[in-house]
Amino acid sequence: MTLLRLILLRILTTAITLFGVAVIVFVVIRVVPGNPIAMMLPPGATDADIARLQAQYGFDKSIFEQFIIWLGGVMQGDFGTSISLRQPVSMLVLGRLPATLELSIFALVIAVIIGGMMALTGTRYRDTKTEGAIDVTAGMALSVPDFLWGLVLILLFGVLWPVFHISGRISPSLNIDFTTNFYVFESLLRLRFDVWLDLLSHMFMPALALAIPLAAIIAQLLKQSLKETMHLDYVTLARTKGYGEHHVITREALPNAILPTLTLVGVQFTFLIGGTVIIERLFSYEGLGNMAIDAVINRDLPLIQGIVILFALLFTLVNLAVDMLYVVLNPRLRHA
C-alpha cells in the first residue's frame, strides 16, 4: 500500500470517528434535562421570553435540524457562540487548548521519567528486595486514582509543606504579554526563565497527580518486557562481548522491550487528557477541562460540543503519533 493511500485512509477514518462523536454528543446533551435558556434569564422571566430566546439560538427546531445547521457551520469553521460566555466557541476553546496540552505533555514527561527509571532499576536489581519495593510502590500508585493523588499532593505540598503552587496556571503578579497561549514554550523562546519556572511550579502538582498512575503502569509493563528480553540470546551475546549490565539493559534490551509499552502509553495518554478535566478543576488550572465542567454546569450546549470534538480530535492525533513512532522504532514494520 502506498503512503498516500495510507494517509488518505487515516484522514477518512478520523473524519468518521469525529462525525460519530459529534452525533452522540449532540443528541445526549439535548436529551438530558436542563434548559440552557432558562438558566440565562433572570428569575421571573415569562414563557414568552424563554420561547423568544430559544428561537434566537435555534433550540425550537428538531434535533435533526439543529444538527444539520450546526454541522453546516462547523464545515465553515464556525462552532457557534457560547451561551454563557457570549463569545465564539472556536476562539474560547482554542484559547484554552494550549494550557491543557502543556499540562498533559508535562505530565506525560514526568510519567515516562519516573516509570522508566523504576523499570530500569527494577530490571537492574531483579529478583532482589529492590525489585519487590518497586512492585509494591507501583501497585500502590496504580490503585489510587489521579484525583485522589491530586488531593494528597495539595495536602502535602500545598498545606503541610507549601513549596509548590497548588492553584492557577501562573502568578498574577507576573507581567506577560505573550502572543500565543503556549506560555511554557513561548517563555522559553523569549528567554523569560522567571515566567517559565513560575509556570512549571504551578504545573508540577497537577501534572504529578496525573502522572503517578501512568508512571506505575509504565514501570510495571516496561519492567516485565525488559525482564523477558534479558533472557534472549542477543542479550547474552552482548554480555560475552564484555559489556556491563547497564549497557546491556539500556542499549540491547530497551529498544526492543519498549514497543508494547509505547502502545500502552499512547492509549493511556488519552486517558490522561481525560483526567485533566477533574485535575484542572481541583487545581483551578485555566485549561480546557475546567472550561468543560463550567460548560456542563451552565448547559452551554455549543461550548460542550466544541470541547468534546476537540478532545476527540486530540485522541485520534495521539493514536496517529503512536502508530508513526512504532514504525520508526521497529524496523520490521518499515517494509509492511
Binding site: 540470546d233 542477543y234 551475546l237 552482548a238 529498544p255 522504532l329 524496523p331
Partner: peptide
C-alpha cells in the same frame, strides 16, 4: 534467529 538484535 534470536542471537542478533532485531532493532539494530
Amino acid at each position: 534467529l534470536t542471537a542478533l538484535n532485531p532493532s539494530r
